[in-house]
Design a binder for these strands. Structure first.
Lengths: 236, 236
DNA sequence: CAGTGGTCTAGACCACGGG
DNA sequence: CCGTGGTCTAGACCACTGA
């Protein structure tokens, strides 16, 4: 693990362990440089990382402060999918409906940037949070990249398997959000009524080298759908 | 303007002007260093910024590539609110319903971190996109920070005024998303029917020094609500 | 104006991708 | 193995905050 990641992890852990609150001040840069015995840029890089994650904010001429959003029970939309590890307050379970190798529809081929006769894994799952239906998820994986899947893997965290099992590096993703009304089929899976609202999210995941490998369509139960995003206005 | 911001802007402009597509390769670091006559770290910082904005992605050992999401007509959820300047494909207009100075409700006081007898500006607006209702927006501004507002300012971009007119620096924001059904009042403003789906977003904006100054509650017309988020898995 | 964070440099060395 | 991006350093100098 890289120095600046290691340091970021330790600082984050420190904030957690000491239950620091929004606005609490961290030691000044010079202190941190001494404490971790690294150069200024390395500390800065750690802090930039934590800032990106929404853990701290830095104020020039003043200090480095803890950032916390109030509100419990919200799921972080961007914590890199498979909200699995968000907070252990949530218990997420998964029911696998389907797992097949198929030829892609035009839509899937387009989003995964593959040809009509390439193979894809098609996975359909319902996910539960604390026993309630959370979402219906239909995912498509480029089989040339995700070479093997089985029911066991798919009922756990697929992303963990992709990283650890297959040794692939997940890069960036594009999320497309809509709000709409549930179809009869979706309502059935989620235990709701047709015509009720839904949050519908399509996501394309890419490897670090830019190759798309996962196209997912997720329909959320609106009753469980409370999301938080910690945004950064550093780019504007 | 700082060097690395300037360079980022130029590179982005270059990509736009030459209509580069996803996967197109940019010159190697050495070339860029020479071209802009800066050190490696400065170029790197520019590219990191562009990566955060979703404009490029960098692959170690290979190169720097243009990132583009397909799909037109989506509004970027995170492009720092007041989607005003997103793409000029959209024409956003604003109708001001209310503009008052009031005492905050408990909810508002909590989110703005002020006392019950502090003053806040309360602004209620309906925003239109290409002539259709886009959203109903109810915003509350800490009057101790946003010292003056009038109907003219409020019918244009408030954030532009905050930055340029008041010289304040906008920092980070917390977004809370829900999906729900329209109340009768909301439906009226949006020209929809009660009980139809809505995307409901509450946002707390902070200055760079961490002070919250704007608490907004936005109800989106689901028919116009297509959002895109370009996420980065650099933190995980 | 002292304290503190941010920018920028020049250069050494490391790690990954792909032929 | 080469080309390429990423990390890390030490230090100079700049810019903002707040007393």
């Amino acid at each position: 693990m890289l120095k600046y990641q290691q340091i970021a992890t330790e600082i984050e852990k420190y904030i957690e362990d000491h239950a620091l609150q929004q606005g609490d001040k961290l030691p000044v840069l010079e202190k941190l440089m001494a404490q971790f015995d690294v150069s200024k840029s390395t500390i800065t890089k750690s802090l930039d990382l934590l800032e990106k994650k929404g853990v701290v904010f830095q104020v020039r001429g003043s200090g480095i402060f803890v950032r916390r959003h109030k509100r419990k029970g919200y799921i972080s939309l961007l914590s890199n999918q498979g909200f699995k590890k968000d907070l252990e307050e949530f218990t997420i379970t998964t029911e696998v409906i389907e797992l097949n190798v198929i030829k892609p529809s035009e839509e899937v081929a387009l989003n995964l940037n593959i040809k009509a006769d390439d193979d894809v894994y098609s996975v359909k799952r319902v996910r539960y949070i604390n026993g309630q239906t959370l979402c219906l998820e239909e995912s498509f994986y480029n089989k040339a990249i995700i070479t093997y899947l089985n029911k066991e893997i798919v009922s756990e965290s697929i992303f963990h398997y992709i990283r650890e099992g297959l040794g692939l590096k997940v890069g960036f993703s594009d999320l497309y959000l809509h709000v709409d009304m549930l179809t009869e089929e979706e309502a059935g899976y989620l235990g709701l009524k047709q015509g009720m609202p839904k949050l519908y999210v399509e996501t394309v995941f890419h490897l670090t080298n830019g190759q798309p490998f996962d196209f997912s369509k997720i329909t959320y139960n609106y009753e469980q759908s409370q999301f938080v995003i910690q945004a950064d206005s550093h780019f504007l």
